[in-house]
Each structure stands twice: as C-alpha cells, then as structure tokens.
Simulated scan of single mutants.
Amino acid sequence: MTTDWDGLPDNVKKFMTALDARHGARALTVFTADAVVTDEGHDHSGRDEIEAWLTASVSESEYTYTTEFTGATTTGTAVDITQHLEGNFPGGVVDLHYRFSLDGALIDRLVIEP
C-alpha cells in the first residue's frame, strides 16, 4: 500500500528525521537490541555495531547533501521508503531505498541500497 509521510510508523519517521539531522543517538533508540542494519553491503548487528555505524554516518563532514522523501509503501510489518539525495558525493545524485522490518514498534532490520 502506498503511504505518505504522515502515514508512516512513528519510529520509522523518527529514524529518518534523526538521520537527516545527523542525530545518531536519537536514531539508535528506534532499534531492537538485536537489530541488523545493512548499508553499502555491510551488516551492522546489535546496538553497539549500529551505534558505531550511525556515529560514522552522521559525523562524516566530507559530504554535504540534501534529502527529499519521494514515496513509501507498507505491507504488514515492512516499510519501504525512497529518498532522493543530491550533494557533493561521487555521482552527486542518488535515490536510496530504506527497507525496514518492524518488531512491534521497533525496527529489527534495515537495508539501505540504491
């Protein structure tokens, strides 16, 4: 089912907003203790590894970019968000998919890929 921003689960919106604002500590609070995040083909398992990934992701000042929510679909406990990024990173433009799996209100799996 197609979902607009306001129709997304609260913790998914909280994660996306915190990531865009580069607030890693706030983004970490939405994950289960044994969650797994896959980004750039690497798995980050559990809160400690996810925290390290978030810290590195939000502190990288090498690149600046803007983000735009372009759409989402939800199916049961799965949420797929598409976000458009433009900036001074290699290629300059990318559409990323954030694929969330929820365990109750918390995120237990996230895959980020083009």
Rank of each mutant, 00 (worst) to 15 (best):
residue 98 Y to E: 05
residue 55 T to Q: 12
residue 110 L to M: 13
residue 104 G to A: 08
residue 107 I to V: 15
residue 111 V to D: 13
residue 10 D to L: 10
residue 4 D to P: 06
residue 49 E to M: 09
residue 34 D to A: 07
residue 32 T to R: 06
residue 55 T to A: 14
residue 9 P to Y: 03
residue 108 D to S: 09
residue 49 E to P: 00
residue 60 E to P: 00
residue 87 G to Q: 07
residue 33 A to K: 13
residue 56 A to S: 12
residue 56 A to E: 13
residue 25 A to L: 10
residue 113 E to Q: 06
residue 110 L to G: 04
residue 103 D to M: 01
residue 68 E to P: 01
residue 109 R to T: 04
residue 38 T to P: 00
residue 79 V to K: 01
residue 22 R to A: 10
residue 55 T to I: 03
residue 109 R to W: 02
residue 111 V to G: 01
residue 56 A to M: 08
residue 93 V to E: 14
residue 47 R to K: 15
residue 114 P to Q: 12
residue 17 T to C: 03
residue 17 T to M: 05
residue 108 D to L: 03
residue 6 D to C: 00
residue 38 T to A: 06
residue 84 H to R: 15
residue 70 T to D: 05
residue 14 K to E: 07
residue 94 V to E: 10
residue 83 Q to I: 11
residue 51 E to A: 15
residue 29 T to R: 14
residue 10 D to Y: 06
residue 78 A to D: 13
residue 79 V to C: 09
residue 79 V to Q: 01
residue 73 T to F: 02
residue 57 S to K: 14
residue 85 L to D: 03
residue 70 T to S: 14
residue 69 F to H: 09
residue 81 I to Y: 04
residue 96 L to M: 13
residue 2 T to R: 14
residue 38 T to I: 15
residue 47 R to S: 12
residue 24 G to M: 02
residue 43 D to A: 13
residue 84 H to D: 15
residue 108 D to W: 05
residue 57 S to Y: 06
residue 104 G to H: 05
residue 34 D to W: 03
residue 48 D to V: 11
residue 2 T to G: 01
residue 111 V to A: 11
residue 81 I to D: 03
